[in-house]
């Protein structure tokens, strides 16, 4: 069995800062990490491999420094890593990204072993679209299983797979045939710590690095900015509300200064003054309780 896991190296968005005047991103010192959602995909793939045998290949499209993330994935125990890097990829939106990744997955299947399952994370924390997975599936005509909470059955001989999928209002138990693409839901497993031999192997591993051409992409106009139907026209900071909050304070005539009871009364007063119909609403709600 051969599983490909697509991961993305992303800036740790908790650390991103915005220039207060120019509204541009200040990148200095912002560390990069493996997209946290992708870790669940890696772990699920490794578990399947451990149980059923086979190989796990990690694939990323990104700048050369994305190699760090691939090496880290190898430390967890993945078998092979492919870095898709080329200046043609710069500025890709989801359509162009899924085109490049789909082509690379196909190539991986030809050069190495045929691919049975492709895993992606549910979404990235920078793009946050959850579209790349479905995009890859559609292009490769793979059965698409999104928001999967876990693989519940795999029959390699019969070429079928069963999963539980998060749906609106419940969980769908689905059965489909291989090959398929799975996007993994967060919180479904916990990424392992690789052993010392895994870590040493990862440190020494040769990362397979492909340009667009190497990956079998003939038409580079389908990549990057040129291959992206969406255009980002404007980036801006959210506008602040014009007036600040009206502050409620302890009434001057309160029995004692700093009296919290009086402050609470004043607050309730102010809330109902601000939004008179609330009083009736809340009374109704409270009664229902």
């Amino acid at each position: 069995m051969h599983i490909v896991v697509c991961i993305k190296q992303v800036p740790d968005s908790a650390q991103i800062r915005v220039h207060p005047v120019t509204n541009t991103i200040m990148r200095q010192g912002v560390p990069t990490i493996i997209n946290p959602y992708d870790l669940f995909a890696i772990e699920e793939a490794l578990r399947l491999r451990d149980k059923h045998g086979g190989l796990v290949t990690i694939l990323t499209m990104g700048p050369p420094m994305a190699e760090e993330s691939l090496r880290k994935a190898l430390t967890f125990g993945a078998d092979r890593a492919v870095l898709l890097t080329d200046r043609f990829f710069a500025g890709s939106d989801t359509l162009a990204t899924s085109f490049a990744l789909a082509t690379a997955v196909k190539k991986i299947g030809e050069v190495f072993e045929p691919v049975d399952i492709v895993f992606t994370g549910k979404q990235t924390i920078d793009g946050d679209t959850a579209q790349v997975g479905p995009g890859i599936a559609k292009r490769l005509r793979l059965e698409q299983l999104t928001y999967v909470a876990g693989v519940t059955g795999l029959d390699l001989a019969g070429r079928t797979i069963e999963v539980e999928r998060r749906a609106e209002g419940g969980v769908q138990a689905l059965k489909t045939s291989l090959p398929c693409l799975i996007t993994m839901l967060e919180g479904t497993n916990e990424i392992r710590r690789g052993s010392m031999p895994d870590a040493l192997r990862a440190a020494r591993a040769e990362i397979v690095t492909w340009s667009a051409k190497d990956a079998g992409i003939e038409d580079v106009t389908r990549c990057g900015l040129r291959g992206s139907p969406t255009v980002v026209k404007r980036v801006f900071a959210p506008t602040p509300r014009s007036e600040k909050a009206k502050f409620v304070e302890v009434p001057k005539d309160a029995a004692k200064p700093g009296d919290k009871g009086a402050l609470a009364e004043a607050l309730v007063e102010s809330i109902f003054a601000h939004h008179p119909s609330l009083e009736a609403d809340i009374t109704t709600l409270a009664r229902g309780y």
Binding site: S195, M196, A199
Partner: peptide
């Protein structure tokens, strides 16, 4: 000895 499995070097 390290905190990894099979962690001796």
């Amino acid at each position: 000895r390290t905190d990894r499995a099979d962690g001796e070097v």
